[in-house]
Design a binder for these strands. Structure first.
Lengths: 225, 225
DNA sequence: GCGATAGTTTGCTTAGGATCGAAGTATGAA
DNA sequence: TTCATACTTCGATCCTAAGCAAACTATCGC
């Protein structure tokens, strides 16, 4: 009875098309303004404002004022993981799917999940790291080995800086398209950040798709080999 | 835009209190009849029938006729995992929680998740199995080692029989209370089944709580040690 | 200060869907 | 065959919540 109430509360927040579109847009990881989200959801500003208030009240998103803008973002990695798992169910048990178009293919291959790399390439990367002993996995928790710390530091990531903020440095996240885990947490975010900084890939506008350049893809292969 | 539609579809299914209560009840793993679910949801039979049709249509549940009864169950482990992840978010970011009562404590300690052991004891069990090399984990996928096969067989589990039906023998599932993985899949179900058969624990009526007997708990400790 | 942009609040309309009673179908029991 | 149980379908009601227009608040640039 009580468990159902919790489920329903979150479910109804996600269950409205306008709010769902907002959440999907925020899965991209970048914070968005109320107007941008209104546009994304296809509703007017007043309506969007009401929706955002509900989402914030329910704890799914977090707001930050910046001048006359208000930036909204998912409040937590766990919210992103939940949304991914819902998408996973939608993809498997959902209504008979039309065969996936080219956009879906790109999305499956490489995309941003909140703030880290997901899709086939993300899963492959974690697999390789585990195989090489750079990451140690136990259950959902993951750990960076000494060899891994060395490797990531040489890649240009400041592990010391990561440790300072509160979020777990290393954790995994279930991938909806591949149904395997990929690397999330501080290290996952830092790796994606670095790859974008090195111009290995570019984010496609208004989407979660990551487009790797041919050179970037080759360097990525070498990096994880 | 499209991603949001998928989210909203599943979300709105979970978002109705009556349906959410039904799903929560089905998380117990046992299949329930329409009347039982109506009672659980606190609605009349016609209403329940309509809800069940929607859930089945959306692919979240699966129906099986048996005489004049119709038994409903979650359609898939992935649905159970999704519901767990939603509960996880509800528990963390949700409305300011009242301090957990004794029921919550029991639920945290040991409960049924669809058809396998979850809660602190479930997480502990998987941790020990991994540490002892009985289960090998790589991402979300898991595997039974040779030593593990031997150990589980001696515990009275027919691993050969497990392999026959289609569901993956070994996989992990994220625990909402502990936020770590526990053991799911065919082996998870078989282990719980065996423990119940050995009278280590009893299921509490109309709830997901597992009550271990003192002796059962001690045997469990030895089993995973 | 003034206009302009970003966002919220208020008040109203409307539609979708949750609910139940009553009638209809299917299965089992006598 | 007849009655009872289990469930669905139909029809009608009612209520929540999504939507927008208009008015209000706050911040920026000048």
């Amino acid at each position: 009875m009580k468990a159902g109430t919790d489920l329903a509360q979150i479910g109804s927040l996600v269950g409205d098309p306008a709010r769902a579109n907002m959440l999907a847009a925020l899965m991209g990881g970048t914070a968005l303004t109320a107007s941008e989200l209104a546009l994304e959801a296809g509703v007017g500003l007043p309506t969007a404002s009401a929706h955002l208030a509900k989402l914030a009240d329910g704890g799914l998103i977090r707001m930050q004022r910046q001048g006359r803008h208000r930036y909204y973002a998912l409040s937590d990695q766990s919210v992103a993981a939940m949304l991914e798992s819902i998408m996973g169910v939608a993809a498997t048990v959902g209504p008979k799917r039309v065969l996936p178009g080219p956009r879906d293919k790109a999305l499956r291959e490489a995309r941003v999940c909140y703030d880290h790399l997901a899709g086939e390439m993300g899963v492959m990367m974690l697999d390789r790291f585990v195989a090489k002993g750079l990451i140690l996995i136990e259950g959902e928790r993951a750990e960076i080995s000494d060899a891994g710390a060395d490797y990531f530091t040489r890649f240009g990531i400041d592990l010391g800086g990561l440790g300072k903020n509160r979020r777990p440095v290393c954790r995994t996240c279930l991938d909806w398209s591949v149904r395997r885990a990929h690397l999330a947490g501080g290290i996952g975010a830092a790796l994606l950040d670095r790859m974008l900084g090195l111009d290995w890939a570019k984010r496609e506008q208004h989407s979660r798709i990551l487009r790797f350049t041919p050179i970037g893809r080759r360097k990525f292969e070498i990096f994880i080999r």
